[in-house]
Amino acid sequence: MINPQWLKSFATLAELRNFTRTAERLDLTQAAVSQHIRQLETIYGPLLIRRTRQIELTPAGIALLEYCEEVDRADKRLKLRLTEADIHCGELSLISPGSIGLSLYPLLLALQQENPRLAIRHRFAPDSEVLNAVLENRYELGLLTLKPDDPRLTASVFAEEALELVAPAGAQVRSWEDLASIGFIDHPDGQAMATRLLSRCFPGSPGVRAIPSHGFINQISLILEPVARGLGFTVLPQYARQ
C-alpha cells in the first residue's frame, strides 16, 4: 500500500504547484516533500514537469491525482459509516443550470429549515461549467441538460423540462425568416437550447448562428427583459420562463 503521507504531499503539491507553500501547509520541510515525490516517482515514473516558475502534472501525475481524490472520498465515506454521523449535518453542494435551479432552490431551503445543521451551497452555471465543477470535485452533484459521456461520471435522468421559444408580444413567428427578422437574445446555454428546439421546429434551417444576435445576458432573471422590449426572441427552459 502506498504511504498516505506521500499521497497527501503529492495532492497538496498538485493543488498549490509550489514546494515551499506545500511544505508550509503540511508543516513539513521542503526536503521532506521532495523526498515523498521522489518515492512516488520511483514507483510510477515522472509525475511532474518542473519549469522555472511552474509545476505541471504529467499524464501519470494526473492519474495519480485522480486516485488521491478517490481515496479521499472513500475515507470520508468510511468515517461517516463508522461514526454513524448525522446525514442531515454538514454541507450539500449542488451546481445546476439556472432554470432547474430556480425550481430546486426553494426546496433545498425548505430542507435546510427542517435540518438547521445542514448548509446548502448551490451555484447556477451553464452545462460546461457544471461538468468541470463535478469532475474537479468542487461540487458533489451536478445537473446537466444533456447526458455526459465522460467515463469518470455516473448519470441518471432527474427531470424533464420543456424548451420554449419566447418572442416579443405581438410578434408573428410562422417561418424561419420571421425569426431572422426579430433577432436572437443569447445567454450561456442559449445557442445549445436554440439549436435543439429550432432544429425540430424548422428542419433544414441554416441554424441559430445564422440569425442576427441582438444581445447576450448571463443573469437568468433578466433574459426576458430585452425580449419584452421587442429587441429579439430567445429560447428558455419552462421553469426559467415561468
Rank of each mutant, 00 (worst) to 15 (best):
96 S>T: 14
61 G>I: 04
120 I>G: 06
80 L>K: 04
61 G>M: 06
74 A>N: 10
146 L>C: 02
115 N>E: 11
96 S>E: 08
67 Y>I: 06
121 R>I: 10
69 E>H: 12
78 L>V: 12
57 L>E: 10
136 E>C: 03
125 A>D: 09
114 E>F: 05
94 L>N: 01
114 E>D: 11
143 L>Y: 01
126 P>I: 05
121 R>Q: 10
134 V>M: 06
127 D>F: 05
129 E>K: 12
74 A>C: 10
105 Y>L: 13
67 Y>W: 09
106 P>N: 09
58 T>G: 08
113 Q>V: 09
66 E>C: 00
111 L>P: 07
62 I>H: 11
102 L>Q: 09
77 R>W: 07
91 E>K: 13
135 L>D: 02
141 L>M: 05
123 R>K: 12
106 P>H: 10
128 S>P: 00
134 V>S: 07
82 L>P: 08
115 N>A: 14
116 P>K: 01
114 E>V: 00
67 Y>H: 12
59 P>W: 08
78 L>K: 08
119 A>Y: 01
63 A>P: 09
126 P>D: 12
108 L>G: 03
111 L>A: 13
88 H>L: 13
69 E>A: 10
109 L>K: 10
76 K>Y: 04
70 E>L: 10
118 L>C: 06
87 I>Q: 05
108 L>P: 08
124 F>N: 11
77 R>G: 00
140 E>G: 09
95 I>K: 02
148 P>M: 03
127 D>M: 02
84 E>V: 06
107 L>D: 05
95 I>M: 06
108 L>M: 15
130 V>H: 07
127 D>W: 03
119 A>D: 09
82 L>H: 03
106 P>E: 11
85 A>H: 02
94 L>M: 13
113 Q>K: 12
78 L>N: 04
131 L>W: 04
71 V>G: 00
60 A>N: 15
114 E>I: 01
107 L>F: 08
100 I>V: 15
63 A>E: 15
92 L>R: 02
98 G>W: 06
64 L>G: 05
69 E>C: 02
73 R>V: 14
132 N>P: 00
126 P>E: 10
89 C>K: 13
110 A>I: 05
103 S>A: 15
108 L>F: 14
97 P>F: 13
128 S>G: 07
98 G>D: 10
81 R>Q: 07
88 H>P: 00
110 A>K: 08
76 K>E: 14
77 R>T: 03
70 E>R: 08
129 E>R: 14
141 L>G: 00
83 T>H: 06
121 R>M: 06
104 L>F: 01
63 A>W: 09
65 L>V: 04
92 L>S: 05
91 E>T: 15
97 P>W: 12
85 A>F: 01
111 L>H: 03
94 L>W: 03
147 K>W: 00
68 C>L: 05
119 A>F: 04
73 R>M: 12
78 L>H: 06
107 L>Y: 07
134 V>G: 11
81 R>C: 02
96 S>D: 04
115 N>G: 09
71 V>I: 15
95 I>G: 06
78 L>F: 11
128 S>W: 05
61 G>Q: 07
122 H>D: 01
91 E>H: 08
116 P>C: 03
97 P>S: 13
74 A>S: 12
132 N>K: 09
138 R>M: 07
142 G>Y: 04
118 L>F: 04
84 E>W: 07
71 V>C: 11
72 D>T: 11
108 L>N: 02
92 L>Y: 04
69 E>T: 05
116 P>I: 05
88 H>E: 08
137 N>S: 08
96 S>C: 13
102 L>A: 08
